[in-house]
Computed example of a mutant assay.
Amino acid sequence: MSNKLDMLEATCNGLVRRMVRLPQTISRAVDQRVDLMRNRPQYPPPNVPFNHNQHPPLDHSNHNYFQPGSGFLASFEQQYGLVHPFFYACRFEEVLKMAQDEHKFVFLYLHSPNHPFTPLFCKDTLCSEVVVQFLDTNFVSWGDVVDRDEGLHLATTLRPTIFPFCAVVARGLDNSLTVVQQMEGPMSPEELVEILQTMLEEQGLACDNRRAKEEEKRRADIRLRQEQDAAYAESLQADQEKETKLIRKKRQQQDNATQNAKDAKIVIRFPNGERKEKTFSHLDKIEAIFRFIDSLGLPGVAGNYKLVSTFPRKVYGIDCTKMTLKDAGFYPEATLFIELV
C-alpha cells in the first residue's frame, strides 16, 4: 500500500497548479441566515479585490435546497482533530456573501475521503499551524464532501482532475462566481501558502492600481466640480452685477422722469427777435429767470426790462421775483417776452 501511495504521489509531483474558468453557472439557494457552528475570532481582512473572469449569474431556479455541511465538519474533526482551518458550516452561497461583506476571498476545499492523497494532505498540510493561521487570517474557508449535497454539485461543476482539490473563489458581478485560483494534487504547507500568498500579492497589486485610478478619477472629479463651482460663481456674480446696473439705470430713469415731470420749460423772446430756451425747476422763483437773462450780458437789456406773458397778458417786474414758477403759471412751460422799460 505504501508503494502505491509513493507511485501516485510521484505521478502528481509534476502537476502544475492552474487557473480554471467555470464554463457554467453554479446553482444554489439562499433561504436562511448564516448558522455558525463555532465561534472563532477573525483577523482583519486583507481588503483585496478579485480580478479574474466573471461567470454567469448564479441560477436560483433549482429549488432542491442544500443543507449546511455539518456532516463534513464532524467527520473531518473525528478523523483529523480540532486543529484545522475554520470551515463555516453553512451554505456555500452564504459564505460567498460573508466573504464579500468582509472583503475576503473564499477558500474552497472539496474533501474526497477515499482518495489516497487525502489523509496525508489533511494531516500534514491542511491542518498544519502555518496553513491554519494563514487561511483564518486572509480567507473565509468552506468545505464539503465531494459525493453529496453542495460538494457533489461543486465537484460536478469544477471538474477536479485529481484530489486534494482546493480553489480560491469570490462572488462576481451579477451574482456570478469567479474562480481566482484552483489547486489540485498533493502539496506541502509551504507550497500551499506560497501559492495563496502570490495570489494575494497579485490581487493586491491590481487593487493598488485600481485604487490609484479611482483616486486619480476622484481628484479629477473634485477639480472639475471646483472649476464648475468657480465658473458658476463667476457667472452668478456677473449676472448680479448686471442686474444691479439695470436696477440703478431703471431708478435713474425713474428719477429723471420724476425730475422732468417737475421741470418748467421757459422760452424767452428778446426785442431783437432772438429766442432762448431754459429749463427750471417748478419750485424756482421768477428771479431765477431774471438772473439767467442778466447772465447773457445783452446790450441795453440788463436791469431795464420786465417779463410779459400773453394769453392772457401779464407783466412780471421786480415786485414778482419771489413768486415760484408754478405759482406764476409757468409750469410745465411758458413763453415770456422781454419788454424794455
Rank of each mutant, 00 (worst) to 15 (best):
N3S: 12
G14H: 14
L15F: 04
R18A: 14
L22T: 08
V34P: 00
M37G: 13
P45M: 00
P46F: 00
P46I: 00
V48S: 06
H52Y: 14
N53P: 00
Q54S: 10
P57L: 11
H63Y: 13
P68M: 06
Y80M: 04
H84F: 06
R91W: 01
F92N: 03
K97H: 00
T118D: 04
K123S: 14
L126V: 09
L135H: 07
T137L: 04
T137I: 01
S141F: 03
S141I: 00
V146C: 04
R148M: 01
A155N: 03
T156A: 11
L158K: 06
L158S: 02
T161I: 04
T161Y: 07
I162V: 15
P164F: 01
A167C: 04
S176V: 13
V179M: 13
Q182V: 07
P186W: 10
M187V: 02
S188D: 07
T198D: 10
G204R: 11
C207G: 15
R219E: 15
R223I: 10
A231L: 12
Y232G: 06
E234P: 07
E241C: 08
K242S: 01
K249V: 05
Q254H: 09
I268T: 03
R275D: 05
K276W: 06
R291D: 09
L296P: 04
G300F: 04
G303N: 14
G303D: 13
G303R: 10
N304S: 13
P312S: 07
L325V: 05
K326R: 01
